[in-house]
């Protein structure tokens, strides 16, 4: 029983990172109708911010998290203004592929400037250690991605539903031109959405450095599962992306634990296939 509980708990924790990536992708897709292939690379950049904050300033990732989110938010604005906004005026294929090209530039730039070798945090992390409950072992640092996913999901929900800008973003996602007619600046709504998605990935990257190694291609590993979580939750649904990420983490861990570790990702894919068989637009898709 304790192994099952441990597996269930770890599944939720592992799924939190997927949920965080998926929420960023869902936000960009839901508002701008662009599949953000660079979300994994924003996660990678967040990890590098965390790594250097730890190495140069001795900061814990949890302390570096606001800095990382801010850096990625600003970077998101710059990238949107200089690249994405222009591509949005072009043909649909360009819109879809522009973030793919961007992801390649970010990976190779990281390789050039930070090196291709594997890195882990070099200075001791203060927020670490385990809490042993007898039936459950809780690694403190692994609570960070879970709590972050909860906070981000809550904040995004609140922001989109109850703030003026959030409502403007929702209106723009429904009909960009109609939103413009009632005085909403669609370009501003797009900019904020893209930057917010980047900031979420930046914060997730910080949380990930607590237990995962860092290298320029690290984003691709998580991004694919992020896309599946978005498709399973329903394109554009933040709640769907969050819950699907957690569900995928649980499926991954329990399949590995009770079926076979060699095919644990089949378990995840079976859950996805079943979900879209019953709900082709995703669990929360409309």
């Amino acid at each position: 029983m304790s192994v099952f509980l441990q597996g269930l708990y770890e599944g939720i924790i592992n799924g939190s990172i997927l949920a965080l990536i998926a929420m960023g992708i869902a936000l960009v897709w839901g508002v701008m109708n662009i599949l953000s292939f660079s979300q994994g690379e924003f996660l990678m950049l967040g990890m590098f911010v965390s790594y250097y904050a730890n190495r140069l300033l001795g900061l814990d990732p949890i302390v570096a998290m606001p800095l990382s989110a801010l850096v990625l938010f600003v970077l998101g604005i710059i990238i949107y203004k200089l690249i994405i906004a222009r591509a949005l005026r072009g043909p649909i294929l360009s819109q879809r592929l522009i973030t793919f090209a961007l992801s390649m530039v970010l990976v190779y730039s990281a390789q050039l400037f930070f090196g291709a070798e594997y890195k882990t945090l070099s200075n001791p992390v203060k927020f670490s250690g385990t809490i042993d409950l007898g039936f459950l072992t809780i690694a403190k640092q692994k609570l960070v991605p879970f709590l972050l996913a909860l906070i981000v999901a809550g904040l995004l929900f609140w922001f989109l539903r109850y703030t003026r800008m959030g409502k403007a973003i929702q209106a723009t996602s429904m009909d960009r031109y109609a939103a413009g007619l009632v005085g909403i600046n669609p370009d501003r709504a797009y900019t904020i959405s893209f930057a917010l998605a980047s900031a979420v990935a930046g914060a997730a990257g910080c949380a990930l450095t607590y237990y995962y190694y860092l290298y320029p291609n690290v984003g691709a590993t998580f991004q694919l599962w992020g896309f599946i979580a978005v498709a399973m939750g329903g394109f554009g649904s933040i709640t769907g992306a969050f819950l699907s990420g957690l569900l995928m983490g649980i499926a991954d861990t329990l399949t590995g634990l009770y079926v076979n570790t060699a095919i644990k990702y089949i378990g995840v894919c079976v859950v996805f296939l079943v979900a879209v068989s019953f709900r082709p637009k995703g669990i929360f898709g409309k």
């Binding site: 192994v3 597996g7 770890e10 399949t255 590995g256 076979n260």
Partner: peptide
Amino acid sequence: NYSSSATNLTSEVL
């Protein structure tokens, strides 16, 4: 048996 690019090795370690 596991994939070296796994996002986690939790079930393996358990």
